[in-house]
Amino acid sequence: MRGQVLGVDRTSGEGQISGEDGHRYSFRPGDWSGDKGPAVGARVDFATEGARALRIFRLPDSDTASVAHRPVAANDRNKYVAALLAFFLGTLGIHRFYLGRNGTGVLMIVISITFVGLIVTGLWALIDTVRYLIMSDAEFEHRYARRYAG
């Protein structure tokens, strides 16, 4: 049977394959044959035993297919929320904390202690607001997507 790798646990090496028959099959690291192991999105050929995939081989075209058809991870950060935070609470750097830029968020709070600092962080926040609004969604995703260690 043929299918596609849905996911792989990096620690244990176990994962799931979606078969062309519409069912999902689990696998373990020892179920793989050949020199290439599992990769999310890879097209595979495998035998089944119940709900388990055995003797799994990656198909030759799976290297390009896994890159081209890999789903884009959803970003839990929104550029419009960041722009609103920058506009209304920007002098305190709240938008920077929201985007995971804690160092510059703390810097903005420290600078805001003085009157001149408020002017500087106000301009900084206004520039950030405009930048977020004109930035493409793809660029925002690239810069501010949360990176999970796995």
Score class of each variant (00 low, 15 high):
A39E: 09
R131T: 13
Q16H: 02
F115A: 13
E139F: 08
V67D: 11
G19W: 02
A145E: 08
R28P: 00
T129Y: 04
M108V: 04
G37S: 04
A149H: 11
G50F: 11
D61R: 12
I134E: 05
S136W: 10
A68P: 01
F46T: 06
V120S: 04
S12P: 00
H23E: 12
G50P: 05
V72Q: 15
R143E: 15
D45S: 14
Y144M: 06
A39V: 09
L92V: 05
V44S: 08
T114M: 07
G93A: 04
R131H: 02
Y98F: 08
G50L: 09
G19C: 03
A86T: 09
D45Q: 14
V110F: 14
V44M: 07
Y132M: 15
G34F: 06
F97C: 02
T64F: 14
S26R: 10
I119H: 03
I119G: 08
G7D: 02
H95K: 03
F97M: 06
Y132L: 11
S12C: 00
Y98C: 12
I134T: 10
R146C: 05
E49W: 12
R101C: 01
A68I: 11
G22F: 03
I94R: 02
G93K: 02
D21W: 04
G100T: 03
D137C: 05
Q4Y: 01
L123H: 01
A83H: 07
T48I: 15
D31M: 03
D9P: 01
L89G: 04
L118R: 10
S33N: 07
I119N: 04
L85C: 07
M135H: 10
E14Y: 02
V8A: 00
V81F: 10
G30A: 09
P38I: 02
F87E: 04
V130F: 10
V72A: 14
D63K: 15
T48H: 14
F115T: 10
R147H: 12
D21V: 04
F46Q: 10
T91I: 07
E20L: 03
E14F: 00
D137L: 08
V116R: 06
I56D: 08
L133G: 08
R70I: 11
S66C: 07
P29E: 13
Y80V: 13
L107V: 13
V67F: 10
G117C: 06
D76Q: 13
T11M: 00
W32I: 03
D128G: 06
G15E: 00
G15V: 02
L123G: 15
S136F: 07
G19H: 01
V106M: 10
R58A: 13
R143Y: 15
R10C: 01
P60F: 08
M1Y: 01
R101E: 06
R70W: 05
V116G: 06
G93W: 03
